[in-house]
């Protein structure tokens, strides 16, 4: 099977039962993406596919051949942290750090969704053109990422500060 991960084309000879998460971690050694629940309930395994966030634990690798997959390892450029990573450090957006790669990929996916006008359950008027991004919107939109350490305040501060300045993952995908 052929995959495009963090801008690189990679081949793998894997069992059809392999999840995208296990492909990343076990076959390509990209252990930044974490396995929490392995059943869609925690968000630790969040990666971006063509800029959209998904849970890689519920994905079969075979379904994602040829798609542009971005993991937390693909966010740095020339060794420099992504602005959102910087913000997580500055705002204590983690304690143990286990949920962090998922939180960061998820927040980038969320920024894309805001740009393309995806409403949320707390959006007052789903038919409105513009969405006001406030604390409740970020909380609701990030609810697919659980932090067992409860670093939520720092996580939301880091995201709020960075929102609007998060570069699209497409722009990062170039080799």
């Amino acid at each position: 099977m052929q995959f495009v991960i963090n801008g690189r084309s990679l081949d793998a000879d894997v069992d059809l039962r392999t999840s995208l998460l296990d492909l990343l971690r076990d076959h390509f050694g990209l252990s930044g993406t974490k396995k929490g629940c392995n059943q869609g309930a925690c968000g630790a395994c969040t990666v971006l596919v063509d800029g959209n966030r998904i849970n890689s634990c519920l994905a079969l690798a075979v379904q994602y051949q040829g798609r542009k997959i971005t993991t937390v390892e693909g966010l740095t450029s020339n060794g420099a942290l992504h602005p959102l990573q910087e913000a997580f450090v500055a705002h204590d957006g983690f304690q143990c750090g286990y949920c962090t790669p998922g939180q960061i990929c998820s927040a980038i996916g969320m920024a894309n969704e805001l740009r393309t006008g995806v409403p949320s359950y707390v959006t007052a008027d789903v038919a409105a053109e513009a969405i006001t991004v406030d604390f409740d919107e970020i909380r609701e939109r990030m609810s697919g990422n659980i932090c067992r350490c409860g670093a939520y305040n720092g996580i939301i501060e880091a995201i709020s500060e960075t929102l609007g300045t998060i570069p699209l993952p497409e722009a990062k995908d170039a080799p």
Binding site: G40, N55, G109, S120, G144
Partner: peptide, 8 residues
């Protein structure tokens, strides 16, 4: 569900 699951 969550945004990730709704995307899938």
């Amino acid at each position: 569900a969550s945004a990730q699951i709704r995307n899938m």
